[in-house]
Simulated assay, not measured.
Amino acid sequence: MYKIATLCLFLMLSSSTLFALQNIQKDTSYTVNNSYHKYIKKFPQIDIVKPQKFENVYEIENIPFKTLENRRLYLDAFMNTSENNPAVILVHGGGWKSGDKSHMKPMAEYIASKGYSCFAIEYRLSDEAQYPEGIYDVKEAIQFIKSNAKKFHIDTTKVAVLGTSSGAQMATLVGTTNHNPKFEQQTEHASSTAVQAIVNLDGVIAFIHPKSSEGKMASWWLGGTSKEKPEIWKEASALTHVDKNTPPILFISSQYERFQAGREEMIHILDKHDIYNQVENFPDSPHTFWLFHPWFTDTVNYITTFLDKTLKHDEK
């Protein structure tokens, strides 16, 4: 309890330095409730997953991790009470334009209960900042978490990045650009941005691909259409960066093939380098299956089994 109290004091002191910051008007078109109403007619059995408290998990919300010119970015921490846990960074979806870190809370709570410290992070959406700023935000969140490893009970050599939908596209790009200087920025946090595992829930791997139908939302985030900015669309695609240094990856997919664009090609490269990868599919599910029962339990079980295999493999 002493360590928990110390962490809480540290975070309160950090928050006390907040200055008057501008409120950013966010796009709220993508919410859990909106997604529910979108799919309820086609999938009448669905039920929204609610947050759940676990005795071995303590939660601290809205921890500032990055100061911008006119505001700060925050993360929510869900920490297992055990020591030296693997860390999982969770990146929400919403077409790069909407969404909120709170959407990841039920998943973060469950994964944390299985022996992990989880962090649902905020990043700048496309109405505020276009690519690659959101990628920098995710990487700086990783640096901040590693820089506070003892306070967050994490092992900095065992870090996974997990994303859903557009957040999965971002998470996979973050994971495939480990140690890539083009995707690194000088920050106050000296820690590495490298991760050791990736979890992709229905996120495209290649923007320009026969299966992909990314259009207006991707164009807004990437600063132009694929014809106007072909090099940017290629650079922002995780498939471009897959090589022998790519971490193991878990793909969990809905029935919609467009969200699998580039997956087969990525798996081919991973197999060539003998890098572990795993694919799980829900053939009759909504795109946002992770938000709903009956798919949530299988989803988090796939994730924790994969993380145990890739991040806890040396534990007896």
Rank of each mutant, 00 (worst) to 15 (best):
A149Q: 14
P86S: 09
T172C: 10
L75Y: 00
A108P: 06
L270N: 14
S117T: 12
T299G: 06
L291Q: 14
S191Y: 02
F152D: 04
V199T: 08
E109I: 10
E61W: 08
S126P: 03
S212F: 10
V300W: 04
N84G: 02
L18A: 12
L90P: 02
I135W: 00
S254W: 01
V138W: 00
Y58I: 13
A194V: 03
K234M: 00
S213Q: 13
H92N: 07
S147A: 15
P283N: 10
P283K: 02
I48Q: 11
G115N: 07
S213G: 05
D76Y: 10
T6F: 04
G262C: 08
F289E: 03
E235G: 06
I89V: 15
F10Q: 11
D27F: 06
T305H: 13
I269N: 09
A120R: 11
S126C: 11
I303P: 04
F292W: 02
G203I: 01
T81Y: 00
K227D: 15
A149G: 12
F289K: 06
I249N: 07
V91L: 04
S166Q: 04
T288D: 14
S98A: 15
N33K: 14
L307G: 02
D100R: 08
G163P: 04
S82V: 01
T172G: 02
V204H: 05
H268Q: 13
P294R: 09
T177V: 10
H209V: 07
K158H: 13
T28L: 05
P86W: 10
I198W: 04
P283W: 00
Q196R: 00
W233G: 05
F144G: 01
C118Q: 04
L75W: 01
G203D: 04
I208V: 13
A141F: 02
I303T: 05
K97F: 03
Y131F: 15
H268F: 04
K97A: 14
Q22F: 12
S147P: 00
H241C: 09
H189V: 08
M107Q: 14
N281T: 10
P106H: 06
T67D: 08
N301F: 02
F251I: 02
P181F: 13
F251A: 02
G99M: 11
I249Q: 07
I111F: 09
V300Q: 03
M1S: 13
A197L: 09
E122Q: 15
I121M: 03
I267G: 03
T305K: 15
P64K: 06
P51G: 02
A160N: 07
K244S: 12
P64N: 03
I208A: 11
S219H: 07
T17P: 00
S126M: 05
I24M: 08
S253Y: 00
A112R: 03
G163W: 08
W96K: 12
E109A: 12
F251W: 14
Q143V: 06
Y2T: 12
V32M: 10
M79L: 14
F296D: 08
H179W: 01
A5Q: 14
K211Y: 13
K309Q: 13
V242N: 12
H241M: 08
Q25I: 14
K42Y: 02
T187W: 08
P230L: 07
A194R: 13
E133H: 03
T304Y: 03
K316Q: 12
K42I: 08
H287I: 11
M107H: 05
Y110Q: 03
D47S: 15
V57P: 06
I40K: 15
R263V: 11
